[in-house]
Amino acid sequence: MRTTKLRPGAWLLAAALLAVAGCGSTRTQFYSLAETTAPVPRAPTAAAAPLYIELAPIAMPERFVRPQLVVRQQGSAAGPQVEILEQHRWSSSFESELRDALGSAVAARLGAVDLTRTGRQRGQPAVRIGVQMGQFDAIEGSRVDAAFSWTLRRTDEGPSVGCRIVLTEPVGGGIEALAQGSQRVASRLADAIAASVPALQGQPVASCAA
């Protein structure tokens, strides 16, 4: 068998080219659920007291408690299957990513202060929000189907309010489009949660029941 002897410099060049090729083939893409444009906050009245919100950790199925995107495949002979995409990830675990996005977005819509990260001072009333994710089916090249329920309770008084919403967001082809569709779902959920806060004062809100 014939062999070819490479000069020392050629070995280094070959190793560098292999390293670059290897990095290119395993490059990980990161995505975020945070909104790229700031929503218009609710205009506070002159006498309105500051509103504080607390968002509890989001309850969700165990398969989503990871940074990788979880995609549901269709068209398989075995039926719909779930695939965990190692090279496509959220910037943190999906639960943390969704909680951060919702906390910021709901606070912005209400003109409120998000105490999720800073903590609440003793005796400072706040609206406590608990969210449960019942469904989040991200289907590549098709849509994102999601279902959420949440409860609202003031920390100082009154009963809780329960709400539920089912969302469908169409998406184009590719994983980036799927991530953008997921971002829009999170934004619509923030709209619904913010709109449900008046139910704490006994005002009627669609899809909510005291």
Rank of each mutant, 00 (worst) to 15 (best):
A105E: 06
A101D: 01
D137F: 05
T155W: 03
L98W: 07
T155Q: 03
M133F: 01
G181V: 07
G24N: 14
W150E: 01
D114E: 03
C208H: 07
S92W: 05
S96T: 12
L178C: 05
L98K: 10
G172K: 09
T45W: 03
L115I: 02
V205P: 06
A126K: 04
D137M: 03
S142A: 13
A78W: 05
L85T: 00
G162E: 13
V82M: 12
L51I: 09
V131F: 07
M1K: 07
G172Q: 09
E35A: 15
G141L: 04
P57M: 14
Q121P: 00
E86A: 15
S207F: 10
S182V: 00
Q87N: 05
A147S: 15
L69V: 04
S182G: 12
R143S: 02
I193K: 09
R153G: 04
Q135H: 06
I84L: 15
V40S: 12
Q87C: 00
L178P: 00
E176L: 13
I84M: 15
A206C: 06
K5G: 04
I165A: 08
E83M: 13
E176I: 08
L6S: 02
R66D: 14
V144N: 03
S196G: 05
T4D: 10
L51F: 04
Q180E: 15
G174S: 13
Q29F: 04
H88V: 05
A179I: 09
A147C: 04
